[in-house]
Structures are given as C-alpha cells and as structure tokens.
C-alpha cells in the first residue's frame, strides 16, 4: 500500500510518501489511521484531528468507513486551499 502526505502533514510525518504493509485486519480508512497513529509521535500528531484530515483512496475522496486494501494509494492531507 502506498501512502502519500501533503502540506503540513508531510512535515509532521517526516516524508512525502512511503510503502507500508499493514496487518490484514486493517480494512478501513479509520483503521489505517489508527494503525499509523500507533507508529510514532509524528503520525499521531499529523492524524490527530480526524474531523479535519481529508483522505483519498486511489485519488478519490474517502470516508472513515471506506475500504483499503493492498495495492491502494492512500493520501492524507488538510482541507484544500486552492483557487
């Protein structure tokens, strides 16, 4: 599974992207965020505000209950500020 981070999440996590292999029971966006948060303080801090963090799975906006699986590209970022 490929994870990508944008804007200030990238700085808190410490890198722009990474390959991870979460355990099989990590089947949803919410579970993935819990699993990541347990990996270190930077992750926990980056993902702390669940109501604010936006998630995209395979470049489509996703909700906490949406499924994730091996091979997916999952992106984490703050609310967008383009325009």
């Amino acid at each position: 599974m490929k994870l990508v981070y944008f804007a200030w999440l990238k700085a808190k996590v410490g890198h722009a992207e990474e390959e991870v292999a979460p355990p099989a029971e990590v089947e949803t966006v919410a579970a993935l965020m819990d699993w990541l948060s347990a990996r270190g303080a930077g992750y926990a801090e980056a993902l702390a505000d669940r109501a604010t963090i936006r998630v995209a799975v395979n470049q489509e906006y996703a909700k906490p209950g949406d499924r994730v699986k091996p091979g997916d590209e999952v992106a984490f970022f703050p609310p967008v500020t383009g325009g």
Partner: peptide
C-alpha cells in the same frame, strides 16, 4: 467553477 474548485481540487498554499 471557482467555488467548487476551492473546496474540491487538491491544492494547498503556503
């Protein structure tokens, strides 16, 4: 177009 873009297109400003 501009209202929709501002809240949906994945851009971030620093």
């Amino acid at each position: 177009l501009i209202d929709w873009l501002k809240t949906k297109a994945p851009f971030w400003k620093i």
